[in-house]
Amino acid sequence: MLKGRSLLEPMDFTMDEFEEVFTLAEEIIAEPERFRRVCDGKILATLFYEPSTRTRFSFEAAMLRLGGQVIGFSEPGASSVAKGESIADTIRTVACYSDIAVIRHPKEGAPRVAASSTDMPVINAGDGGHQHPTQTLTDLLTIRCERGSFSNLAVGVCGDLKFGRTVHSLIKALSRYEGVRFVLISPEELRIPDYVRKGDLVKNGVEFKEVERMQEVLCELDVLYMTRIQRERFFNEADYIRLKDSYILDAEKMKLAKETMMVMHPLPRVTEIAVDVDDDPRAYYFKQAKYGMYVRMALIMSLLGLQGEEQR
């Protein structure tokens, strides 16, 4: 039962609960009109302390398409946060006006502080370089709808694996599926943090290898998950400039990949995927963005306990 719960990281939900959300998302994709008034009278609060395009728009679009309303801020300077209000106090106040909240924050663990300060469901929409569980729901729904199954996939994850919150959540979630193995492609400085390596991969006996060159492993991958080198996570601009163009996937490199390999990216991209890959049928990153809205509709409904209220 997901009603009343929060989603702060992927392991907050069991595999069966993931399945429940995906099944509902597929029902919404098939017949969106059945769900257009499900959230009538409900309010979603969006607390974005960091810039966002896809995540915020997709949450807002999701709630509006379910017949609900949205309040919130996309610029903390326009709220009492600018006066130094704590996260705990902000969420307690927001809970007086809304039924469910989405929070994005540059500090890692901020959504956990929020969730522990209210009984209202809280959704982590990205906390620093830590976790981004709803992007993972998006990624998994994309693979499920386009590929059918997660089992026995060889998943290449490329780019900023140290600060890449989408990567951390994806590895956590996929580590639970049978036969999944990871190829982690990054410069040495941007390798996955110890808590992911030890806590998710080693602990669960998941097969993985860490390499620095993309070309040498492309032929063995079923999914290539590209990520951006994130300027905003670096304390040192020189380090960012040195590493920002470490990996660029282009049409030439795509020739080395399987005909069935899926290229995915949480977006926004900068230079890491050349535009000449966009027309390749193996490019799935714009489809991902659409799946993101549907899976967030399913998530909002599930956490509000509104699953199937209409026409069932």
């Binding site: 704590s86 996260i87 705990a88 924050h105 540059p106 500090k107 890692e108 663990g109 901020a110 956990r112 502080v113 906390d127 620093g128 370089g129 830590h130 030890k198 806590g199 304390f235």
Partner: peptide, 20 residues
């Protein structure tokens, strides 16, 4: 001590650690 951790800015958040 992680400068990116929320406990570096949220003064009243208890510092909680779990044995791994």
């Amino acid at each position: 001590k992680n400068p990116r951790c929320v406990t570096s800015v949220e003064a009243n958040a208890p510092h909680i650690f779990h044995l791994v």
